[in-house]
């Protein structure tokens, strides 16, 4: 029973981290129609910037400064790269961001090397915050949960309650009218891209110490972020949160319990083939849930695309 609660907390951490990554991506997509392949690379940049800053000024300065730096880099990419490519249509944009992802990975390798860098959690957050029976809940995880929730709340507030948010939403649907009213729409786009990448940067800063900071970290998370926003519905912030949490809990529970395919199959009335090793289905019968945990989100995505192509909360087709 306690284990379920612990797994719920662990899944929540994974989900919220994924949300912070996908929030930026879905925001950028809904605003500019750009699928940013380099998004996970900004997440990696966040981790590396924070590591570099933390060696001089400590973790907290890293948390404060690194996302800003990433945001500035992101805004620069939009201003001097994407904006020029934009006029040629969506395919060149895709290719541009794809190339950018490769470039950033090579740059990171060039500057910080191929090894993991020793980016550590701050001392004050080391150790357990509390224990549920014999399971430690690390203080750092609690910190991650709170930080993500604060960011989600702030984002929601800015987008729905403030003047800036209204302009952004208006620019989303009627860019020409907004421009005619005297607002600088390209500036809005640049801002959104900057904030979106900065969000990815925050995710990198707080994930770096626990998921380890190495040049492959963008690659490992790159595809799952896209799965998240497709399941949630392209352009929907609430959908991204929902999908991220579903994925977090789905993978956590699948890994934490050894559900065997054998039990499921016999449960629904199939007979176990004897001898098993001779059967064409032996691979299927010997599967366990931890083995397939990481492909479950992709399975879910396929199902969503078949039955609800615009995602859980999306308003438009993928």
């Amino acid at each position: 029973m306690e284990l379920i609660l612990v797994n719920i907390i662990d899944g929540l951490v994974t989900g919220l981290l994924l949300f912070m990554l996908s929030a930026g991506l879905t925001l950028i997509f809904s605003m500019m129609g750009v699928l940013n392949f380099a998004h996970a690379s900004f997440y990696m940049l966040g981790a590396y910037f924070a590591y570099e800053i933390s060696t001089y000024l400590g973790f907290w300065m890293g948390l404060l400064v690194a996302p800003l730096l990433v945001g500035v880099v992101g805004a620069g990419v939009e201003r001097y790269g994407l904006r020029r490519v934009h006029q040629y249509g969506h395919v060149p944009e895709l290719i541009f961001t794809f190339g950018l992802a490769l470039l950033i990975e090579e740059l990171v390798k060039f500057i910080w090397g191929n090894d993991q860098v020793p980016y550590q959690i701050p001392e004050i957050l080391e150790g357990a915050a509390f224990t549920i029976s014999s399971y430690n809940i690390p203080a750092y995880k609690v910190f991650m949960i709170f930080l993500s929730l604060i960011i989600f709340g702030g984002l929601l507030y800015v987008l729905t309650k403030t003047r800036v948010g209204m302009i952004i939403q208006a620019a989303l649907s009627y860019p020409r009218t907004v421009e005619a009213l005297g607002h600088n729409v390209p500036l809005v786009f640049m801002g959104v891209f900057g904030v979106g990448t900065a969000l990815a940067g925050v995710a990198g800063v707080i994930a770096g110490p626990v998921l380890s900071t190495f040049p492959g970290m963008a690659f490992v998370l790159g595809s799952i972020v896209f799965v998240t926003i497709v399941i949630g519905g392209l352009g929907s912030l609430g959908g991204a949160l929902c999908a991220a949490l579903i994925i977090g809990w789905l993978t956590t529970f699948a890994k934490a319990y050894n559900v065997r395919m054998e039990d499921i199959l016999t449960g629904i009335g199939f007979e176990k083939p004897e001898p098993l090793w001779d059967s064409a289905w032996s691979d299927l019968w010997t599967l366990t849930s931890p083995q397939i945990a990481d492909i479950l989100p992709y399975l879910l995505m396929v199902l969503i695309l078949v039955f609800r192509p615009y995602g859980l909360f999306g308003k438009r087709d993928v």
Binding site: L3, V6, N7, D10, V13, T14, Y135, V210, L211, V220, L221, I224, T251, T252, F253, K255, A256, N258, P290, A293, D294
Partner: peptide, 11 residues
Amino acid sequence: KVKDFTPYSRK
């Protein structure tokens, strides 16, 4: 392929 080993650690 494993991003986060937490569920395994719990087990």
